[in-house]
Computed example of a mutant assay.
Amino acid sequence: MAISDRLLAYLGSKKNLAGATAGLGGLALTFTGAAGPYWPAVVAGLYGAGALLAPPERVAPPAFPDPATQLGELRRDFTALTAYAAETALPPEAAGRMRALTATLDALLDPRWSADALPRHPEALHALARMIRRDLPESVDAYARARWWSRLSPGADAPESHLDRQLTLLLKEAKGLAAALHAEEDGRQRSHSRYLEDRPGP
């Protein structure tokens, strides 16, 4: 920040305003004759005291995107991911797991439900973003690369087995997220039932 910018920021700060207010009090003492010949020191001292006693400026926190914006971006990334996965020829078993996984993720990101449920669960939102933006693309890309190299070195671990293990773990994680969100909604419904049952009648 340039010196002129810092000066302008200080002129409008709470410290300067408090010091100026206290300094005006010193000028009032000067006009009444109470400050005597030492009025410059009195005014400067009161200004400094006011500036020191003023509360510090509060630094505004950074503005992060709200959950609704994050969900919109995540849905667009998921659309790009499914298009990318469709272009890669997967073995039949892995392709079936991929369909099950993308169907689960698509349901979790359904705007009719996720707009309410996911913002209350930042951990679930983070886990979905990690799966869509890192884990799944890495699994598909690593499989495609390993499949090409396996032709040059037969006998190594089959890339298909690693891909199937990875998709199985990701599907388990996605279903766990769905189960956790369902459990919370079920708990809310049960709580409302108890509230209605316990509420005194007319």
Rank of each mutant, 00 (worst) to 15 (best):
G48T: 15
G48Q: 07
G48E: 11
A49V: 14
A49Q: 13
A49Y: 12
A49K: 10
A49T: 12
A49I: 14
G50N: 15
G50K: 14
G50A: 13
G50W: 11
A51D: 00
A51F: 08
A51S: 06
A51W: 02
A51C: 09
L52K: 11
L52I: 05
L52Y: 07
L52Q: 12
A54K: 05
A54Q: 00
A54P: 01
P55Y: 11
P55S: 05
P56G: 10
P56N: 10
E57N: 06
E57M: 09
E57G: 07
R58L: 05
R58I: 03
R58P: 00
R58N: 07
R58D: 08
V59P: 00
V59M: 01
V59E: 13
A60K: 15
A60I: 04
A60N: 01
A60L: 11
P61M: 01
P61R: 12
P61Y: 00
P61A: 11
P61S: 13
P61C: 04
P62R: 15
P62V: 11
P62W: 06
F64Y: 08
P65W: 05
P65V: 09
P65N: 12
P65I: 05
D66H: 13
D66N: 08
D66L: 12
D66Q: 10
D66T: 08
P67N: 14
P67A: 14
P67S: 15
A68P: 09
A68Y: 03
A68E: 05
A68M: 02
T69P: 01
T69A: 15
T69F: 07
T69C: 09
Q70I: 10
Q70F: 01
L71A: 01
L71G: 06
L71C: 03
L71N: 04
L71K: 00
L71I: 10
L71F: 03
G72R: 15
G72Q: 12
G72L: 11
G72P: 09
E73W: 01
E73P: 09
E73T: 10
L74D: 10
R75M: 08
R75Y: 06
R75T: 06
R75S: 00
R76F: 03
R76A: 01
R76I: 08
D77H: 07
D77E: 14
D77F: 06
F78P: 07
F78C: 09
F78Y: 15
F78G: 07
F78I: 13
T79D: 14
T79E: 13
T79P: 05
T79R: 01
A80N: 07
A80L: 07
A80V: 07
A80R: 05
A80E: 05
L81M: 03
L81Q: 02
L81S: 00
T82I: 01
T82Q: 09
T82K: 12
A83M: 03
Y84F: 15
Y84A: 12
Y84Q: 10
Y84E: 13
A85Y: 07
A85P: 03
A85H: 09
A85F: 13
A86W: 09
A86P: 12
A86Q: 15
A86R: 15
A86N: 14
E87C: 02
E87H: 12
E87R: 14
E87A: 08
E87L: 04
T88C: 14
T88N: 04
T88A: 13
A89G: 11
A89T: 15
